[in-house]
Design a protein around this nucleic acid. Structure first.
Lengths: 112, 112
DNA sequence: AATTAATACCTAAGATTTTTATGCATAAGG
DNA sequence: CCTTATGCATAAAAATCTTAGGTATTAATT
């Protein structure tokens, strides 16, 4: 609902970035955290999130730890070493991308 | 080549934004302009561009004017009234998205 | 003169990512 | 008891992009 099409392609970056700061989170928590941090602007659907988490895990960027809380099972994800590295480079890529987009929508004349 | 996955979903925004400033452009020109404006960071493939242009035209956001230059045919695209409106709202959406992403990667504590 | 690169359009198969629509199960609230 | 919230998951469909072709003219290189 009301999800910007622009968000496409940025899901794994968001996941890695959250885990970089939070150390460990479970899926449902991620959807709620994103909703809260973006004031409802971004709503990650579970149909997108879980496959994305599984893929990141398969790539060796995340590792899993199961935990039972209130008799309900949670799958906590945290970055591996490789995931930490990737998280940093994805952040740089995001910043580069945003600069690039800014350059497109608001071209600065070359200095000099 | 070397295209950020983040760019997915932003192609139509880019097209509309270029046409907003340029008044009229043809397809090949758009690929070159983007490459130039982004210093090679973004390379729009023709396989992505042409279907996107056709879709925007079908949606009534662009209109076409054929022109023969050097015995080669060019399809010039320009914004319709509706396309101009959409261009503005897409730009706002992009700016909102970038703020949102900034809020995600660098959460500011609430003031007060 | 012949070949390659650049200009200029196009489409179709495949890959990737996301939405939509489900399903299951436990806990809490009305 | 029934609905909402929590918590996981998958599968069909839609959307978007890459890759890999195709056609044709003009300019540059060999």
């Amino acid at each position: 609902m009301s999800n910007s099409k622009l968000y496409k392609g940025s899901l794994s970056t968001i996941i890695l970035q959250l885990l970089f700061k939070e150390d460990k989170m479970y899926g449902y928590e991620i959807t709620q955290r994103v909703k809260e941090l973006t004031k409802g602007e971004l709503n990650i659907t579970e149909g997108a999130l879980y496959p994305a988490l599984h893929k990141l895990e398969a790539e060796g960027l995340l590792e899993v730890e199961m935990k039972k809380v209130d008799n309900r099972l949670r799958k906590y994800y945290k970055l591996t070493q490789k995931g930490t590295t990737e998280s940093v480079s994805k952040l740089e890529e995001l910043e580069r991308f945003m600069q690039t987009m800014n350059g497109l929508i608001d071209p600065k004349p070359s200095l000099g």
